[in-house]
């Protein structure tokens, strides 16, 4: 039953079309940011420059750039929050705005099941647009690094950054879902969600979700995404918002 709903939601032609247009653009932004590096302004005092083996490669300049470049591509994160809000609002409002929600909700599915499958499908698209490009850039643009590449991808720094990226999309998703069930208009929901998530960045306030992007440099210096502040903003707050929107979803009228 649930599987049917999820495959129906992820197979929605409109959402697949939006993803086909947006995800390659997101990957392009990341790749262009990664290839833009090429600067060496550091000066190291020490013994002879070491030859890196897979176990020591995480201290090389290449590893450092691989870990730090995503936080230097603001276009990627802005477009990612736009994409995540569009997908969430399309999932939660498009059927109601177009009117076919009435026939959908008359099918023998529980409202809770419909809500969960909508959230799950949105999460699938959000992860596809964020974590997937991050890994693809690291794998496909570094074929010559292959001896050390796998140790870089398996390092805790990279995994922590993927966790922070997940926090980012999870936060944007939960805010958009809340506005999607609160407002009775697709455009209004999208606008509200986009402004709430992105305006703090333009006013250089260190609020989530963009504080997670800043966290990338903290992770390089030994920080962890599981610290109380990060876990509260990246997991607890979104889950609270999702529970809140679940209440609105269950108690509110369809349409």
């Amino acid at each position: 039953m649930k599987g049917n709903l999820i495959s129906w939601e992820v197979g929605d032609p409109l959402k697949v079309l939006v993803a086909v247009i947006t995800v390659p653009v997101l990957s392009y932004l990341l790749a262009a940011g990664y290839l833009h590096s090429m600067a060496g302004l550091a000066l190291i005092h020490g013994n002879e420059p070491p030859t890196f083996s897979p176990s020591t490669a995480t201290s090389s300049m290449s590893a450092h750039w691989l870990f730090v470049y995503p936080s230097l591509v603001p276009g990627f994160w802005i477009l990612l929050s736009l994409f995540t809000s569009v997908i969430s609002v399309l999932t939660f409002r498009y059927d109601r705005d177009r009117g076919y929600a009435l026939s959908l909700y008359s099918l023998p599915y529980s409202k809770l099941g419909i809500y969960l499958s909508k959230v799950a499908s949105t999460l699938v698209f959000a992860v596809l647009a964020s974590i997937f490009p991050l890994i693809a850039v690291a794998v496909f643009l570094n074929a010559d690094l292959s001896p050390v590449l796998w140790s870089l991808l398996g390092s805790t720094t990279f995994l922590y950054e993927l966790v922070l990226t997940f926090y980012f999309v999870f936060f944007v998703l939960s805010v958009s879902v809340l506005f999607g069930v609160l407002f009775k208009n697709m455009f209004l929901s999208f606008l509200a969600a986009f402004f709430v998530t992105v305006v703090p960045y333009f006013s250089s306030l260190m609020l989530p979700p963009f504080s997670f992007v800043e966290g990338f440099t903290a992770v390089l210096n030994g920080g962890t995404p599981f610290s109380p502040a990060n876990a509260a903003a990246g997991l607890a707050l979104p889950i609270t918002l999702l529970l809140l929107s679940l209440v609105v979803f269950l108690r509110g009228d369809v349409v």
């Binding site: 090429m38 600067a39 060496g40 302004l41 550091a42 090389s60 300049m61």
Partner: peptide, 28 residues
Amino acid sequence: NEHVRGYIGPGKIQLESGRLSYIPFHSP
């Protein structure tokens, strides 16, 4: 990114009493 320039240095590299100062950089 074909014609984008990435700058290195300027810096003083030297070998002084067994200790090296060197400039590491990453090429994509």
